Computed example of a mutant assay.
Amino acid sequence: MTIAPTFKIDPTEFAGKRVLVTGGTHGAGAAILRRFRAAGALTATSARNEPTEDPGDGLFVQADLATPAGVEALAEGVAARMGGVDVLVHCLGGSSTPGGGFVAATEEFWQAELALNLLAAVRLDRLLVPRMIEKGAGVVVHVASIQRRLPLFESTIAYAAAKAALASYSKTLSKEVGPKGVRVNTVSPGWIMTSAADRMVKRLAESGRTDEETARRGIMDALGGIPIGRPAWPEEIAELVAFLASDRAASIHGADYVIDGGTIPTV
């Protein structure tokens, strides 16, 4: 498969819904944002820097969500401009730890990975979910990773641990807020065709003093292969997230949906 898939979208599916997607300026987050916007939602997103691509008609807040101040700025911006959110999709994540295993994952890298991949979601939920509870309705989707079950020790040990913690936190949150009308689910993608994945390949190639194709094969081997023969497209992740946020999934709560092309080899 060489081109991204297209899906038929109901332009009224999320009409009137206020949707916040973190990490919505690139990769899977951008695809998720486009999916909700195409379905009629009022959207918002954020990033540390101004987006290089047109973010569309939605709200954009420049903020570093790896910091408490950045999370507060986003929550305040959404509250002031949108009055809160009906759907919160936390897609922000990534890894900057170099190759080299646990020794290379210094204190600085551990703190950075936890702040970006776990605490940003925890802090944002704490500020935005209470309004959902007041309304008695809302949806939260946390994007984790299959690395919480298949960690790659070479370069993403801290990332994998943070995503595992995010999945555990999501389950706990679902138990608390489910009876109050707020649904919480987790999506755990495998390898996705994104620019971030390309950067990881380059980083591994550089640290391993090899070429990118060898580094790419190394990732595939470490994952045990992908039975469908390819990574997922961001648009496929977006379809799953949109389904979980929709009324069609009204009874799905506290679940973790894996979308990895069959990478995880066990039931």
Rank of each mutant, 00 (worst) to 15 (best):
Ile3Ser: 14
His142Pro: 00
Phe109Trp: 13
Ala66Ser: 15
Asp54Pro: 08
Val129Asn: 06
Gly101Tyr: 13
Val143Lys: 06
Lys171Glu: 10
Thr210Ser: 11
Phe102Cys: 05
Ala205Phe: 12
Ala137Asn: 14
Arg216Lys: 13
Leu244Tyr: 10
Glu72Arg: 15
Gly23Trp: 03
Val122His: 10
Ala245Asp: 08
Thr12Phe: 14
Ile133Gln: 12
Gly16Phe: 12
Ala232Asp: 05
Leu59Asn: 09
Gly136Lys: 07
Glu213Cys: 01
Ile219Arg: 04
Ala79Asn: 14
Ser251Ile: 01
Pro11Leu: 07
Gly218Pro: 04
Pro5Tyr: 10
Ala73Glu: 03
Pro234Gly: 02
Ser145Glu: 14
Ala112Phe: 12
Val129Ser: 08
Asp125Gln: 13
Gly93Met: 07
Leu150Ile: 11
Thr156Glu: 13
His26Val: 06
Thr67Glu: 15
Asp211Leu: 00
Arg209Ser: 08
Ala80Ile: 00
Ser170Ile: 00
Lys163Val: 08
Met200Trp: 10
Asn49Ile: 00
Ala245Arg: 07
Ile228Leu: 05
Ile3Met: 12
Arg217Thr: 01
Ala245Trp: 01
Gly77Thr: 03
Lys171Pro: 00
Ala164Trp: 07
Gly93Thr: 03
Leu88His: 15
Leu114Val: 15
Met193His: 03
Leu118Gly: 13
Arg123Glu: 11
Gly225Met: 01
Gly101Leu: 10
Ala250Val: 00
Met220Ile: 01
Ala79Met: 07
Arg48Thr: 02
Ala28Ser: 11
Leu74Gln: 04
Gly16Ser: 08
Lys202Tyr: 03
Met82Glu: 06
Asp256His: 13
Glu53Cys: 05
Gly208Pro: 00
Leu118Val: 02
Ser145His: 15
Tyr257Thr: 02
Ala121Thr: 03
Leu92Cys: 04
Thr97Gln: 15
Ala38Pro: 01
Asn49Arg: 15
Ile32Phe: 06
His90Arg: 00
Ser155Tyr: 13
Ala4Phe: 05
Gly84Cys: 04
Leu150Asn: 13
Ala47Met: 10
Phe153Val: 11
Gly83Ser: 09
Asp247Cys: 04
Ser246Cys: 08
Phe153Ile: 03
Ser170Tyr: 01
Val61Asp: 13
Thr186Cys: 10
Thr97His: 05
Ile133Gly: 06
Glu72Gly: 06
Ala15Ile: 01
Asn49Asp: 12
Val85Lys: 00
Ser246Pro: 12
Met200Lys: 09
Ala73Lys: 15
Ala104Thr: 03
Trp110Glu: 03
Gly16Trp: 14
Thr12Cys: 09
Arg34Ser: 10
Val87Asn: 15
Ala104Trp: 11
Asp260Gly: 14
Gly56Asp: 02
Thr25Tyr: 10
Pro151Ser: 12
Ile219Ala: 07
Asp221Tyr: 04
